[in-house]
Simulated assay, not measured.
Amino acid sequence: MLAKTAGVKHLVVLVNKMDDPTVQWSEERFNECKDKLTPYLRKCGFNPKTDFVFMPCSGLNGEFLKERSGNVATWYTGPCFIEYIENMPSLTRNLEGPFLLPVVDKYKDMGTIVLGKVESGCCVKGQNLLLMPNRTPVTVDQLFSDEDEVQEIRSGDNVKIKLKGIEEEDVSGGFVLCDATSPCRTGKVFDAQVVILEHKSIICAGYSAVCHIHTLAEEVSLKALICLIDKKTGDKSKTRPRFVKQDQIAIMRLEAAGVICLETFKDFPQLGRFTLRDEGRTIAIGKVLKVIE
């Protein structure tokens, strides 16, 4: 579920310990695991036909991870794990877009250091950026990738950036470093499509939970329920629902406690998908449809 929310589009499910004496590479046991997991993965938004695949394996002796010995699980005719992932299409990174890095953490070391993953564009040493949502202008002093100082960072890199023009105490996790000419959007009120995964009672206006969106955790409250969406047809209800419950999909208006960085899922998925958590449990996943204010 969290993988889907983080943007993972394809899963390889390895059914491990198939070499256990109580299992002995049983096709029946493999199919039992497969049949129990498939409904849950479908509920999380993965398509069983295109989005995930099951493989038997043994982590102890490496069977079906890199290669097969040929004398076990003869009923499985698919590829081994390494063979499968090596043949998957490579990820397309947005190198041409405006620079964007959600801040995961920060610390002080002869200046202000921020850590995060570059989600879009490129950045070079000496470049002027904006730190949102406060619109603080900063300058890149040093760039580090894999602990080595570099002159340029690109989309997909996990990096550390030393900034000039801001103090460490003025930076928080969930802030976003942006291109000065094309900053990310900010707002407090937004409309979102939300799937209720696990919640025993009904949810109605006034309900509050913690929203985890990119690197930010912020309390949000439900301002209004706009409509329900039929799971099978995708049709929207014509009347406003009074409440929403487990396994339903709804479009709702949410309000954050403060101004946050976010984008619509359509424009920028990395800043437009989120989870809602309550009392230590993930109760819903959603995507931002529109930033209101």
Rank of each mutant, 00 (worst) to 15 (best):
A6V: 14
K9A: 09
N16S: 12
M18S: 04
P21V: 08
P21A: 14
T22G: 13
T22C: 10
V23K: 13
S26R: 10
E28V: 13
F30L: 07
N31P: 02
E32Q: 13
C33Q: 10
T38D: 10
T38H: 10
Y40G: 13
L41E: 07
K43M: 07
K43Q: 03
N47R: 10
K49I: 09
T50R: 10
P56C: 00
P56Q: 00
G59S: 10
E63M: 06
E63I: 01
F64Q: 02
K66F: 14
K66W: 09
E67W: 05
R68H: 06
N71Y: 11
V72L: 06
V72Q: 11
W75M: 08
Y76A: 02
T77W: 00
P79W: 07
E83Y: 01
Y84F: 15
I85Q: 03
N87E: 08
M88Q: 14
M88V: 05
S90D: 10
T92C: 05
T92Q: 11
T92N: 04
G97E: 05
F99Y: 05
L101H: 03
L101V: 04
V103M: 09
V104G: 09
D105T: 12
D105P: 12
K106P: 08
K106G: 09
K106I: 00
V118W: 09
S120C: 13
C122Y: 03
C122I: 12
V124C: 14
V124E: 15
L130D: 03
M132Y: 01
N134E: 13
R135S: 13
V140Y: 00
D141R: 15
L143D: 01
L143H: 07
D146V: 05
E149M: 06
Q151P: 07
Q151C: 09
D157Q: 03
N158Q: 13
K160M: 09
K162H: 07
E169C: 10
G174Y: 04
C178N: 01
D179C: 05
S182H: 06
R185G: 07
V189F: 03
F190K: 04
D191E: 12
A192Y: 00
A192F: 00
L197D: 02
K200M: 04
I202H: 15
I202L: 11
I202Q: 15
C204D: 09
S208G: 07
S208T: 14
V210G: 01
V210F: 06
C211A: 12
C211E: 08
L216Y: 07
E219P: 10
L222Q: 01
K223I: 12
A224W: 15
C227S: 15
I229E: 08
D230W: 04
G234C: 12
D235F: 03
K236E: 12
K236V: 12
S237V: 03
P241F: 03
R242K: 15
R242M: 10
F243C: 02
F243K: 04
V244K: 07
V244R: 08
M252I: 08
M252V: 11
L254N: 05
E255D: 02
E263D: 01
E263T: 03
L271K: 08
G272S: 00
G272A: 01
T275H: 01
R277Y: 04
D278E: 14
E279L: 15
E279K: 15
G280N: 03
R281D: 11
R281H: 11
G286K: 00
K287M: 14
V288S: 02
I292N: 14
E293T: 14
